[in-house]
Design a protein around this nucleic acid. Structure first.
Lengths: 332, 332
DNA sequence: GTGAAAGCGCTAACAA
DNA sequence: TTGTTAGCGCTTTCAC
């Protein structure tokens, strides 16, 4: 920058002001400066600028469990476009639902002085990560998984009622009484809430809760497959299954196909989470669709709001989800 | 940091050395310093450190077209774990295959002084982005889309032969002679190479190339669906279709289902790109599987190699892909 | 073993 | 309309 100033015969601060548009500069001088910048191939150092400005770096930190989950892909995509509008870049990391990895990631984001953080907290975030985030002055919004006690902004989908509505549909429209649940990773609020929704649904349809009909599917394809296997290989298997997320839907359906059980004839199926391919399955999937992009956008709104006013009360936003009825439930 | 130094009664430089392990510090002093850091809630400023060290920021910039494509999700995931091992964080951005957006993203990454860049270049990258990257001293590796002329490291999948093998299979095993191609976004090397592979396949099976059997599927679900529609609604429609990527596979299959054409009976189908759900489709998909994680890992290796030795010759790595035969092609 | 001080590349009063 | 200069928070030589 000093070189540019010399070559353009202006002061270093004029160069700075040209670059930032922070004060009026004579058009002639400006042109000259820009020409020199171009010619010298000079590139503004964003890092030094952030330091000089005393901190903030025009970037947002994002942490999710796995990029490969299309759910997070869509959310991050929405966040990306939203923050790009005000000149920020994303700093990303994967947590793998691992406490240690998550803690390290957030620490790193904080050290890099991001302007805000969007995090899908894992099962044990309350131990170290959330306290750290609450203590830090960096605006944070928790994504997808809600920690009601956390003094942070949060946004997620309503899980209870939609899951209950799946049970309603299976029970009322298709007369299913033995409904199984391939449940998510223990410790995630989504897992807990969807289980709650499942139980709510059973209850209001007068079906007794049978713990053998709930399997730990670990929120992954593999574990979901195993959970389905355990549940369906029993004496008195369920006649319908609900999978707690898209990954476990794949796992469950894979087991069913491998074992030549047809959906919905042998066993009816519903999933939480809809996706592009859902309608192309052997039996198009009946599922709860979350509004992924909207979740991402909302996260950014919350962040911006708090950026402007730190004293705002913490809010927990629940976005609605909708039931998409296709055929895997038994509907024609 | 000054506060820490004061409170711990040591010099500011000792604090720095404790933090970085850059020189021996008396264990007693070190403990004292760490205690103060803890107590004051001090957090190292990574930005200032990068500036003081004269540049590099321990971060890698990544640009891809769309997060929602599971292909890129998997690649980025692999990159993430690989660079996390040496303490770097990812700076991410979506290009949307848009020249302007891509250019801005790369500019921003450069200004943020990333240590290296991994980019899936769009159709018009050669205009501004690649020249800028070649001029910058920042190590860069091009991902997925190869620009043979670029003076940059590159890694992608072998596209020609695998695509040709799809034609082989369709022609030789299933006797298909009218094979359509739902082709990708014009301008992408992958699109071009897969088209080339398709033509190679036709040729060596003695099938004449018919341009009406190639449709521009724009690499997306929607355009893929439209391309399939145009192609199949003709007088003499293809009896088999190859889709150029996973998105277009979905689009094509969606159109087929909507129009009640069964796969493979009415029309056989193969896709480039395999994915989790492929085997759960009405007719499990025969597809070319790229080794996604390996591509990401290779990108990081190339980056590290160049980080260590700038004078290395530029390499273009082609990773193998494999044919996964299921049923959509007509196999039992 | 530790400290003093110069400097990284930039911003932003303050002054002219 | 522009320049001078004191930082921003850190690293690192050099010296003790």
């Amino acid at each position: 920058m000093r070189d540019v100033a010399m070559a353009a015969q202006v002061s270093i601060s004029t160069v700075s002001h040209v670059l930032n548009g922070t004060r009026f500069v004579d058009p002639a001088t400006e042109t000259r400066v820009r020409a020199v910048i171009e010619q010298l191939g000079y590139r503004h150092n964003h890092l030094a600028r952030a330091v000089a400005r005393g901190g903030r770096s025009q970037s947002i930190g994002v942490g999710v469990s796995a990029w490969t989950n299309p759910y997070f892909g869509a959310v991050v995509s929405a966040i990306d476009s939203a923050v790009a509008d005000f000149g920020s870049t994303l700093l990303l990391g994967e947590t793998g639902e691992d406490e240690e990895r998550e803690y390290r990631l957030v620490t790193s984001l904080l050290e890099r002085r991001v302007d805000g953080i969007v995090l899908a907290p894992g099962p044990r975030s309350a131990e170290r990560t959330l306290p750290m985030l609450e203590a830090a002055k960096t605006p944070t919004v928790l994504l997808d998984r809600i920690y009601p006690a956390a003094k942070l902004d949060q946004v997620g989908t309503d899980n209870i009622e939609p899951t209950a509505s799946l049970v309603d549909h299976l029970a009322q429209t298709h007369g299913k009484l033995r409904i199984g649940l391939v449940s998510g990773l223990p410790g995630l609020s989504t897992t807990h809430e969807r289980l709650l929704g499942y139980q709510t649904g059973l209850q209001r349809n007068g079906i007794a809760f049978d713990p053998t009909l709930v399997g730990d599917g670990g929120s992954s394809v593999e574990q979901g497959e195993q959970a389905a296997a355990r549940m369906l290989a029993t004496e008195d298997p369920p006649t319908a299954i609900i999978a707690g997320n898209n990954e476990m839907s794949v796992g469950t359906l894979r087991w069913l196909r491998t074992n030549r059980l047809s959906v919905p004839d042998d066993v009816a199926f519903c999933g939480f989470d809809d996706f592009d391919w859902a309608e192309l399955m052997t039996s198009p999937i009946t599922a709860i669709a979350q509004d992924w992009p909207r979740i991402g956008l909302r996260a950014v709104s919350l962040l911006r709001a708090r950026l402007e006013d730190t004293t705002l009360p913490y809010s927990i936003d629940r976005l609605p989800a909708s039931l998409i009825i296709r055929n895997s439930c038994g509907c024609p």
